Structure formats: C-alpha cells, structure tokens
Simulated scan of single mutants.
Amino acid sequence: MRLFFAIFILFITASFSAQAQDSVKLNTILSKVKRLADEQPLEKVYLHFDKPYYAVADTMWFKAYVTIEQNIPTPFSKIVYVEVFNAKDSLVKSVKLPLKNSVAYGNIPLNMRSFKQGNYYVRAYTLWMLNFNEEFLFTKNILIGEAIDKEVLTNISYTNEEIDKNIKTTAKIQFRDINKKVYANKVVNWSVISRGDVFIKGKGTTDQNGFLTITVSSKDGQLITKG
C-alpha cells in the first residue's frame, strides 16, 4: 500500500510538473505572438463603392479605410494603392491616394479607351501589406457593362444661395447628342456624390430645350461647383 501511495504521489507530482511546463510553453508562445503583432502589425484595407456595378464611361467612386486589429485606424501607412485588373489579370488602371486619419477618397474614370464591357477586379493595399501573404490584400470583383451614355453631352451651370445658414445649390443641366441635338422630354436618374458617398438622388424630366434643373441642399455646408 505504501508503495502504491508513493507511486501515486509521484504520478500526481509529475502530472502537475508537466502541466506547469505546458503552461510556461503556452505563455511563451502567446508572448512571442503578441510581440510579433506589436512589431509587425497586420493592416487591412476596405473599399466602399458608390455602386455595385458600372458601365463604360462611368466614374467609379470609392472610399478607402485602412485599419489594424480590432478595426483600429492604422497609425502606420500614409498611402493606399488601388488597382483595377481585367479578366486576363492585366493591370488597367492604378491610383495612389494619401490617407488622412486612415481614410482616403478616390475615383477612377472608366474611359472607353481603357475599359470594355466585361469582368474586372479591384485590388487595394498598402506597401506594408506586401510583406505578408497576398490573401490579406483587399480584392473585389466588379462588372462593367456596355456604355450607356457614350453619346450624351452635358453642359452644367451652378448657382448657390445661403438660406438659414444652409447652402442651397441649383444645377441646370442640358443634355445633347454628339450632333448637338437636344434630348427633350427625357427621363433622367441623377445622384449627388460627396467624397464617394451618394447623399441624395432623384429622377427628373428634361424640358423641350433638353434642360433638367435640380435643387439640393449642400452636404455639411459645402459648395457644389462641379459634377
């Protein structure tokens, strides 16, 4: 009985010793992982687009966010790179955007010389992200359809007035074809975009001279001077 008791005590002691060693090893691994994360933080890029798909001759507007773990704004990178590739993995367009408070606003005109109807994908990253696996880069598939408005010419004029500390903007837009013939009595869907975000949209009909008049209140008191 004494021998059995001694062996049992020895087994328990060895078991606790092994658990203690495993605990030390685990703590060491966790400490190394944390130190590696602190020394080499992993950045993530996310792009928010104004539309899910586009047509040739459209403009792709987007807002870029760059964060580290727990979606904290990155204090490291100051530039984000955005690229568009076609279905053959050929680079079609790239832009380099400065980050302010980990956010960047950008746009890519889908001109008819560079873009055709088909499937494309957008890739976004920081230079720091290139030190890691490519699977961490932001990618999104984008469908670009045939040009809808490639034969439409527009002329826009703006007037601004301040009413009760709000700035009201009136845009007068004339629509014509390539032969300068006006588009009279045509339904037009329109939207106002600020820094890649659509903050108001609507529908109207051109008059007999091809003019459409739109009146909106400017976002955050900003003047609208182009579009």
Rank of each mutant, 00 (worst) to 15 (best):
P73A: 05
F85W: 04
V56W: 00
S77G: 06
A87I: 15
L97T: 07
F76Y: 15
Y65V: 09
P75Y: 08
D50S: 15
V82S: 00
V66P: 00
D89C: 08
M112G: 11
L110C: 03
P109M: 06
L47H: 02
D50Q: 04
K93D: 13
S114V: 08
T74W: 01
V82A: 00
M60N: 05
R113V: 14
D89V: 06
H48L: 14
K100I: 10
S77R: 00
K51S: 11
Q40R: 15
N119V: 11
D38R: 07
N71M: 10
L97G: 04
I108T: 00
F62P: 04
Y120E: 00
K96S: 12
N111P: 03
V95F: 02
F115I: 02
K51I: 05
G118F: 06
E39M: 10
L47R: 01
L97R: 04
R113F: 12
Y121A: 07
V103D: 02
A87Q: 14
M60L: 06
D38S: 11
W61N: 02
N71P: 07
F85D: 01
V95G: 03
E83M: 09
L91H: 05
W61Y: 15
D50C: 07
T59A: 08
T67Y: 03
G106P: 01
Y46S: 14
P41M: 14
A64S: 05
A57I: 12
L47Y: 02
D38A: 11
M60D: 03
V103C: 03
Y65D: 10
I72G: 13
S77L: 02
V80Y: 00
M112H: 13
K78F: 06
N107G: 11
N111R: 02
Y105V: 11
V103I: 13
